[in-house]
Nucleic acid binder design. Sequence first.
DNA 1: ACAACCACGTTAAACGTTGTAAACGACTCT
DNA 2: AGAGTCGTTTACAACGTTTAACGTGGTTGT
Lengths: 332, 332
Amino acid sequence: MATRLSDVAAQAGVSVKTVSNVINDYPHITAQTRAKVEAAIAALDYRPNVSARSLRKGRSDFIALAIPEMASPYFAELGAAISRAAKRRGITVLIDQTEGEAAAERVVMDGMRGQLIDGIIFSPITTVPSKLTAADTGKPLVLLGERPAGGQFDRVAVDSVQASYDATSHLISIGRRRIAAIGVGGTSTGAVRRKGYRKALKAAGLPHDPALELAGTGYHREDGAASMRELLALPEPPDAVFCFNDLLALGALRTLADAGLRVPNDVAVVGFDDIEDGRYHSPTLTSISPDKEWLADNAVALLLERIAGHGDTTHRDLTVPYILQIRESTAG
Amino acid sequence: MATRLSDVAAQAGVSVKTVSNVINDYPHITAQTRAKVEAAIAALDYRPNVSARSLRKGRSDFIALAIPEMASPYFAELGAAISRAAKRRGITVLIDQTEGEAAAERVVMDGMRGQLIDGIIFSPITTVPSKLTAADTGKPLVLLGERPAGGQFDRVAVDSVQASYDATSHLISIGRRRIAAIGVGGTSTGAVRRKGYRKALKAAGLPHDPALELAGTGYHREDGAASMRELLALPEPPDAVFCFNDLLALGALRTLADAGLRVPNDVAVVGFDDIEDGRYHSPTLTSISPDKEWLADNAVALLLERIAGHGDTTHRDLTVPYILQIRESTAG
DNA sequence: ACAACCACGTTAAACGTTGTAAACGACTCT
DNA sequence: AGAGTCGTTTACAACGTTTAACGTGGTTGT
């Protein structure tokens, strides 16, 4: 049924090897032969068999992207960007939903998809299990987001401390004095962003009130909404909130709307990620906006470089550029 | 480096084929041998090689999901659901971003990923190119959404006419008389949903004003926002809008907020898809809510059945259950 | 005329897995 | 006791591709 190399060879009147050479861009081929072969390929609508090729070469030109959940807008946007970046380089991305905490285990247990994939881009939202350190999967890995303790992997991420510092400082600059933080979980992300948040408060000489640091159980809208409800129940509610991602912020905005509070007049809100929802929400959401295209492109490039294996063992650490997008939720 | 079948066989003291038999649940194996083999597999941490397996079997247990763009919330949610449904059955989903109109061409050109995938779930948002009809890729295909002219494929979709009828009728039932529609493109989706919209108007004895049917260029927030601006510029603006998907509706809500109009008091809005954003937006969005889990599960099941190939050639057409979720955007 | 290329061909051997068919015992049945 | 049967295991040949080693004429340059 499926046409194979030998069919093409027969049609073009050349050897199998020559066809293979044409396909693999072997340098020494006459323009004439190449044309003949290409004509035959077109005529027979030949497609190389990926399985056979990857079995023989040991490379598949597939990489995996492991994310907690693709229905989450940030990860959806990230996945889309990474898919495009990979396609540009002729490689295909397999998306893996790790669904929460057991992420690394699952990746490892999946056995790297039966040795099909050449490498993996791993984007944890919660903790990076320390097991990852030990479990050397043998395949190149690029980490997205906060570095796990004693990072020994290639990594691409925003400077979360600085970005959080900027976000908080922005709230201070518009006159807020009682600034809450939502999302200070036990996760690396939560810890790092809290660091920048506290730093900004300190730099401005503002007191640090532990009651204003909300942990919550996750990073979804409902968690943000719940945390905001807690904050409003406080004897002295905040006049601004820095949410550690946009989903939390959107949830918080929902609670504020339900409570009849005006944003930003009563409470100003800043998010992190700059997902598209935030740009259309009422009010539009001020947010830390990482350059996702840059992130995707460099993550893929880095991984491919590692797969090609130019021997150097030092791991690299790329910092994603970002800007603070100021919108209605902080600008009256 | 990677342990293979023969390594396991050596370790267990049996033949390669026996190990293969154990892995593939071949019925006639002594408990004793099975135990030996399983011990060896565990000891060596053996993982079957997908490439070799699929080369030999002609099946890979991979299916493709072709969607316009995964960053679009509806498709992200759909992709997540389909991924889960597939994983439950031990198969892996490859997501393909077709990015708009050239969808089918690309799928075909991709050559079904070099014969790796076993079948494809195809979810067009714009037109289903008629080429699809001709281009028999040889692989099973399940279509999501509106049926193309002369549908001859398996298909899973909501009854869009009925759903649109329900949505429009709901607006009528809350007293609206001048109801606009956004998203009446030349696409199958647009055409079908317009049909239900017009039918509802007619059933209620309302006049049908062509100026209230907005086509727009796409199905994103910005298109909804632009269309809404057009509607507001009308000499006699509408008192309700039925948007053919939630993204359009969210864009429309944005424009209404900018214009200082109250929803639903001044203008009521209904969407289609029930994406999570709509549930947290201010106001929350009334929407047609298809059962995405049902959709995903049945689409995957149908495709797998087709792959297994129980010879019957009649194509099947499954109707996804839905409800109308009434929220703030229509309920004062 | 000799070497040094060049453009291809030929053949064989992998890559790791599974289907086919046959071999092997250990039974049971005449 | 020999033939048939059954349950379990194995040897061998594929699947479609690439790599390697070697061969063969043909072209070019000295």
